[in-house]
Design a binder for these strands. Sequence first.
DNA 1: ACAGGGGAGACTACCACACTATGTA
DNA 2: TTTACATAGTGTGGTAGTCTCCCCT
Length: 405
Amino acid sequence: MASLCDFCGKQRSMIYCRSDAASLCLSCDRNVHSANALSRRHTRTLLCDRCSSQPAAVRCLEDNASLCQNCDWNGHDAASGATGHKRQAINCYSGCPSSAELSRIWSFVMDIPTVAAEPNCEDGISMMRIDDSDVINHCDASDDKRLLEIASTTLMSDPPSGDNVKPLTGSSSGDRFNVLPLATDQPAEPVSVTPKVPYATDDKFNDGMYEDLCVDDADLTFENYEELFGTSHIQTEQLFDDAGIDSFFEMKEMPPFDSNEQPKSIQLECSNVVSADCAMSNPGARADSSLCIPVRQVRSSISHSVSGLTGESSAGDHQDCGVSPMLLMGEPPWHSPCPEGSVAGGSRDSALTRYKEKKKRRKFDKKIRYASRKARADVRKRVKGRFIKAGEAYDYDPLSQTRSY
DNA sequence: ACAGGGGAGACTACCACACTATGTA
DNA sequence: TTTACATAGTGTGGTAGTCTCCCCT
């Protein structure tokens, strides 16, 4: 069921670029994503061997197949009798890794063809480094090997959870590329989501891995995410308005990424976003019984996340990034939710308040369809908020903030 | 338990006019 | 079929007014 590369249409596609929503062969992947610094930051991963349309999340060692979450669920549910299959998390990458480097990341993939290195890609990496230096590329080269090992050896015997899928950040092979955990509907970049306070679940990652990762230096709040991409409010309104949580699985296309905006890299800490990746990206999956997560459970997960995060990372913040709080939590949806009583009432209330405030603010975020009209409205004089005819007396001038009388 | 008041938030109308969409010659 | 023109409709932001909900007394 191999599909052809969306770009050249000739080679068998191996890589899925979420940002481009495209399946690419290795050669085209390299060509396309070496074009500029922005495209270089697209996160890519293997294509699902089964459906050939979704990004693979796990590698089934028994079946020797890379599977998206949907196919993984379908293929390893209780009915299939394959629940015991050992699976390995597949991480995504950005940048321009060589075929050799890809082989290191995905050692299980035997047929990675050699792709000629592109000199301009190397140059571009240097450009990217400038932008990213604050956030991603702080890891020493000595960490690279370690990262790669981690990246390719996360074993699991069940769908990925926050317990066994560890956050992976930093650069590899001298900043040639970044190995990243799979993220859900990343807008265009290796966008990941992290509380300002580093949230590491493993000593391995507390042990110097983040020492140079000055997350605080970069304002990585989700408000900024919205400002950067200007998109999430649509999606999150859909997802989290009063009835929106119930429509969690009804995904719509993300608005196009505005390349004029300066993207920032944010690190995904809770990589179990992988687990719902296909559910999020595959609208049809809603009908799949294996994906039918009770709304109550989703709500409970939200409550859980509220208590589990601190500071800027409120429930509302998660909602802002367009990713369900459920997905950002350490617990996957198939885990039993925390007992209701385990959530501290105070923190939940405060989180709820912040969520409401954020929702309120978002209410006034309009999607501007015609920038020219907005530009004009921004400079038009008014009387009590109403536009006036040209030349008439006004009480408000957006330009001078003065009155004519 | 119920009613009323007050506050806060949500929602909508209003304005002029450049621009877009549609229809017609 | 293409082009030019006319006309109707739309969208833009700040403010004020109204409505709804919630909390307190």
